[in-house]
């Protein structure tokens, strides 16, 4: 079982920063041969369409690079807002917190 990469987003990201994160992450997945990525967004007090799309891109890209992505820690108010905005984050796996996210990654790697 490979090691997991844990990314904690702790700043209010402007769009360029979100794209940088996307690029850095895919590079790390390849260089570290990471099989699982956890993105902790518990510190984010909003997810707008741009950040939502970036998370989706990261999930798709990591899948192509043979890694699973799980987004963890979304605040309830953010989830409510996302759905009304019209973003249901298709293709993105989510978990309540880092521990549950790790369990999810372990399970799917054992199955795979």
């Amino acid at each position: 079982m490979g090691d997991f990469l844990l990314v904690t987003i702790q700043v209010d990201m402007h769009d360029r920063l979100a794209i940088t994160l996307q690029e850095d992450l895919t590079e790390r997945i390849v260089n570290d041969r990471t099989r699982g990525v956890l993105i902790d967004i518990s510190a984010l007090d909003i997810v707008d369409s741009f950040i939502g799309r970036t998370l989706g891109n990261i999930a798709s890209m990591s899948r192509i690079l043979d890694a699973e992505t799980v987004v963890v820690g979304m605040q309830p108010s953010v989830a409510i807002t996302l759905v009304e905005l019209g973003l249901s984050l298709p293709g993105i796996r989510t978990a309540l917190n880092v521990d549950r996210g790790m369990d999810l990654l372990r399970e799917s790697l054992e199955r795979g």
């Binding site: 007090d45 707008d48 741009f50 108010s77 409510i80 807002t81 905005l85």
Partner: peptide, 17 residues
Amino acid sequence: NLVDQTKIVTAASELAR
């Protein structure tokens, strides 16, 4: 309230972009 704060901030983010 927190949900309404989140909604107006998210709307503002979309419109500002």
